[in-house]
């Protein structure tokens, strides 16, 4: 063990190689089989010829100027926002919509209509299901206070923070034209 502790970096590699030839797996008392924690000799120290052993890698010669950088990033036409030319009017609400595509506003309204209809169909009249259908004592028994998790509280006011698709613009009325 004393020889391990005094292992120095200069000439260490030859020393290790020499050790490697005599270390065999299964030798029980030798503890130098964990030298990976120790700092090993770098390439420059082995060859002694400076950084990266004389190899020079390709690097940019100069800093790319503000103008050139922005020309590269934002000038090409295919990277810019394109004008939509495939627009027409929604036949039911009159706002703009993409041609050959449903108007998302009307789709949402019709889906909401389905939801209310199905809710009314499934709900049998005369049977109390909601908290307001019960009197005070029954309500306390049927709907005891529930501790809401942070996630449930967050989902309560989802309409305030969730990004929604904005509605398309209305088609302006043409004045003085039929």
């Amino acid at each position: 063990m004393a020889s391990v502790a005094s292992w120095s970096r200069s000439g260490g590699s030859s020393f290790l190689n020499a050790l490697g030839s005599i270390i065999r797996p299964g030798m029980p008392s030798f503890t130098l089989r964990l030298p990976t924690f120790l700092p090993g000799p770098s390439a420059s120290e082995v060859t002694g010829t400076g950084i990266d052993a004389g190899l020079v890698l390709a690097v940019p010669k100069k800093k790319v100027s503000h103008m050139k950088k922005r020309q590269k990033r934002y000038a090409p036409g295919d990277k810019q926002l394109k004008q939509l030319t495939n627009l027409n009017r929604c036949p039911s609400c009159g706002h703009y919509k993409r041609a050959h595509t449903l108007c998302m506003h009307c789709v949402g309204e019709i889906k909401a209509l389905w939801r209310t209809k199905e809710k009314n169909e499934t709900r049998t009249p005369g049977v109390a299901t909601k908290p307001e259908d019960f009197d005070d004592i029954d309500r306390q028994i049927m709907f005891p206070g529930k501790i809401k998790s942070a996630y449930e509280k967050k989902m309560e006011n989802i309409n305030e923070w969730l990004y929604k698709r904005p509605r398309t613009l209305p088609v302006e009325k043409k004045v003085g034209k039929k």
């Binding site: 050959h100 595509t101 449903l102 998302m104 990004y163």
Partner: peptide, 8 residues
């Protein structure tokens, strides 16, 4: 199949 607006 109906096409609708691209996904947000």
């Amino acid at each position: 199949i109906h096409k609708v607006e691209p996904r947000l």
